[in-house]
């Protein structure tokens, strides 16, 4: 099928289903880590995986739409500074890992390293810098508080995506048939 204006159909559907998954995992899939106010948000592993699979635009929009809907449906009001940061995480992971062709079943050591460098960079930019700065700009909250929150959330998300995201991507990679994996028998 010829490429038409804007998003492809699979991207549109991936954004829709990805956002729905983001909402459900954001509500049920978080595990308290034992440190106060910090939990393992498995939903960011999902976001990273979908950014890897469906690209930066899907990542950006899943972060934005999913986070807005999650906040709105379960908590009554979206927290926009963090919504934007979630979108940014998806965008950066999608951009940085665009060379990984996981759909062809390639997810070995090299791809794992690329993926993790991408996710650490994305989480660092989004949670150490953008989220606190937006908190200050939009809500004029004290700098110490928002930077501490960002630091804790960012570190937790890096670990979550690093462990759970990588495992999920590897599991997905195994379900795909490797390109060039046919062997000639005698």
């Amino acid at each position: 099928m010829a490429r038409r204006n804007g998003l492809s159909i699979i991207t549109v559907v991936a954004i829709g289903i990805g956002s729905a998954l983001f909402v459900i995992l954001g509500r049920f899939g978080s595990i308290p880590s034992g440190i106060p106010n910090t939990s393992i948000e498995t939903t960011y592993a999902l976001l990273a995986l979908f950014s890897l699979l469906y690209g930066p635009v899907a990542g950006l929009l899943i972060g934005l739409i999913g986070h807005t809907l999650k906040d709105a449906i379960f908590y009554g009001s979206p927290w926009f500074s963090w919504v934007i940061s979630s979108g940014l995480v998806g965008l950066i992971i999608g951009l940085a890992s665009s060379r990984i062709s996981i759909a062809d079943g390639h997810f070995g050591r090299k791809e794992i390293i690329t993926f993790n460098v991408a996710q650490v960079a994305a989480n660092a930019i989004a949670w150490f810098a953008v989220a606190p700065l937006l908190d200050i700009l939009i809500y004029a909250e004290p700098a110490d508080k928002v930077f501490t929150q960002g630091l804790v959330a960012g570190a937790a998300n890096m670990v979550t995506v690093g462990v759970i995201g990588t495992l999920l991507a590897a599991a997905f990679g195994k379900t795909r048939t490797k390109q060039g994996s046919l062997r000639k028998l005698n």
Binding site: V12, V13, I15, G16, A20, L61, I65, I73
Partner: peptide, 12 residues
């Protein structure tokens, strides 16, 4: 994008 949002609401 609007359709993606409606898909999300439909599938939650």
């Amino acid at each position: 994008i609007a359709y993606a949002v409606s898909l999300a609401l439909r599938y939650i």
